[in-house]
Design a protein around this nucleic acid. Structure first.
Length: 259
DNA sequence: ATGGTCGCAAGGCGA
């Protein structure tokens, strides 16, 4: 089973590039972030016609996540538990029914800039809520995949210019510590496990020729529970997508599971 | 230190 994560930065802007990538990469499951659309405006028929079940958790203009799956989805849940006042659409879960059931969580973790301020406080609070949700799900002992745009650069080797990020919410020690606390619940960073060499990125800013200079960062991650990590066969970044027509500033990252 | 570029949606915010 091939499971991908892709921050598309707006479904309207990616209405051609996303189907083109799906047709070429043929993932079984895709978690999308920043659909920037309400559920009613999401072009679900386009993806249904390509053989995907479509579950969205959108909102007007910003954020928004979705899961596309060629396999049936069960027990869909929307929103990260722990704060009923949180109206931002950043979390969706579903169980994918393949040869075995896999719980897939698609997430769009808050950016957190500028620091300090309420946006950074929201990021850290959101990460604490995610820590709690991961703890809860781990008790099920199901294979779990937590994938999405984490807006965290885990280590210096995950940035072309780590020194440029030292005061940024994506790389501050507190951000990386909160990320590490989640990983240390017992999750495996699929890409790091399969591609230990530095210099692989999933995001290049639109500004200042970041792509042309390969000034990237790795912030899109697939974290696997032990039961899912046992099934891990491969993990790749589809870097070439960034050089395509009208690209997102992120590229897809995917895993192949023996399931 | 600043500005640089996109997307959404129709002015400015978010990244």
């Amino acid at each position: 089973m091939k499971i991908a994560t892709f921050n598309i930065n707006g479904i309207k802007a990616r209405i051609e590039a996303l189907p083109a990538w799906l047709a070429q990469a043929k993932p079984d499951v895709v978690c999308l972030q920043e659909i920037k659309s309400v559920d009613e405006a999401f072009p679900r028929e386009l993806f249904q016609d390509m053989g995907y079940h479509v579950e969205t958790h959108g909102m007007k203009a910003f954020n928004g996540v979705a899961i596309l799956s060629k396999l049936p989805l069960e027990d869909v849940a929307r929103g990260l538990p722990g704060d009923p006042s949180d109206e931002q659409a950043r979390w969706i879960e579903a169980t994918v029914i393949g040869t075995r059931a896999i719980r897939v969580c698609g997430l769009y973790l808050p950016n957190g800039n500028p620091v300090p301020g309420p946006k950074y406080d929201y990021k850290l609070g959101w990460m604490e809520r995610m820590h709690h949700r991961v703890q809860q799900l781990l008790t099920t002992e199901e294979p779990l995949v937590f994938c999405g745009d984490y807006n965290v650069i885990p280590q210096a080797q995950d940035a072309a210019k780590p020194e440029a990020w030292i005061n940024d919410a994506l790389y501050l020690p507190q951000s990386r510590e909160a990320y590490r606390r989640i990983v240390n619940l017992g999750l495996t960073d699929a890409f790091r496990a399969k591609q230990p060499a530095p210099g692989h990125y999933s995001f290049w800013d639109y500004q200042a020729g970041a792509w042309e200079r390969n000034n990237g960062i790795r912030i899109d991650h697939l974290l696997l529970s032990a039961q899912a990590a046992d099934l891990l066969k491969d993990c790749q970044i589809d870097k070439a997508v960034r050089a395509g027509d009208k690209p997102s500033d992120h590229v897809p990252v995917w895993i192949e599971l023996d399931a």
